[in-house]
Simulated assay, not measured.
Amino acid sequence: MSVNESLMQNSYHPARSSHIELQDNVDAQQAALLEKICPAGLFQRDADGRLVFHHQGCLECGCCRLIVGDAALSAWRYPPSGSGIVLRFG
């Protein structure tokens, strides 16, 4: 089973608002790291070149927090109860 097939087994219940918030002035190096390390590919550039985070589909793995921490993230918390990812195996 491929990684994408495995991820499709999961169930997502996105919260109304994002549980991860970006700093206002994320520098280009930090933005490139976030785009590269997110296993779900949720950090992307918008049409104006600004970094945005799409919280729907977040794996809640914490890679972004471990790699860039407070340098690029103003908040990282788990989604509220009943929201987020439900992992399904096999």
Score class of each variant (00 low, 15 high):
residue 66 L to A: 15
residue 4 N to Y: 05
residue 89 F to P: 00
residue 12 Y to T: 04
residue 60 E to P: 05
residue 15 A to W: 02
residue 86 V to M: 07
residue 51 L to F: 05
residue 2 S to M: 10
residue 36 K to R: 11
residue 59 L to T: 06
residue 59 L to R: 09
residue 81 S to R: 13
residue 84 G to R: 08
residue 62 G to M: 14
residue 44 Q to T: 14
residue 89 F to K: 07
residue 77 R to A: 14
residue 40 A to Q: 09
residue 32 A to L: 04
residue 68 V to S: 08
residue 51 L to W: 05
residue 20 I to K: 00
residue 23 Q to N: 13
residue 32 A to Y: 03
residue 29 Q to S: 08
residue 45 R to M: 03
residue 90 G to C: 07
residue 38 C to T: 07
residue 61 C to E: 06
residue 61 C to P: 11
residue 36 K to D: 10
residue 19 H to I: 14
residue 14 P to C: 10
residue 43 F to S: 00
residue 56 Q to T: 15
residue 76 W to Y: 14
residue 48 D to H: 09
residue 36 K to M: 08
residue 89 F to N: 06
residue 79 P to T: 11
residue 83 S to F: 13
residue 7 L to F: 13
residue 89 F to T: 11
residue 30 Q to C: 06
residue 11 S to F: 04
residue 7 L to A: 10
residue 20 I to H: 00
residue 67 I to F: 05
residue 34 L to M: 12
residue 20 I to A: 03
residue 83 S to V: 03
residue 67 I to W: 02
residue 69 G to I: 06
residue 53 F to V: 01
residue 86 V to N: 07
residue 8 M to H: 09
residue 74 S to G: 04
residue 44 Q to C: 05
residue 56 Q to I: 13
residue 10 N to K: 08
residue 39 P to N: 08
residue 82 G to Y: 02
residue 74 S to E: 04
residue 79 P to G: 09
residue 16 R to Y: 01
residue 28 A to I: 06
residue 32 A to S: 08
residue 71 A to D: 11
residue 62 G to S: 13
residue 12 Y to G: 02
residue 23 Q to G: 01
residue 54 H to F: 11
residue 30 Q to G: 01
residue 25 N to V: 12
residue 87 L to H: 09
residue 78 Y to C: 09
residue 67 I to G: 01
residue 36 K to Q: 12
residue 78 Y to K: 12
residue 82 G to F: 03
residue 68 V to W: 04
residue 26 V to R: 00
residue 25 N to T: 14
residue 66 L to M: 13
residue 20 I to S: 02
residue 56 Q to M: 07
residue 11 S to H: 10
residue 65 R to C: 13
residue 39 P to M: 07
residue 32 A to W: 02
residue 84 G to D: 06
residue 78 Y to N: 09
residue 53 F to Y: 15
residue 1 M to H: 12
residue 60 E to L: 15
residue 10 N to P: 01
residue 33 L to R: 02
residue 87 L to W: 13
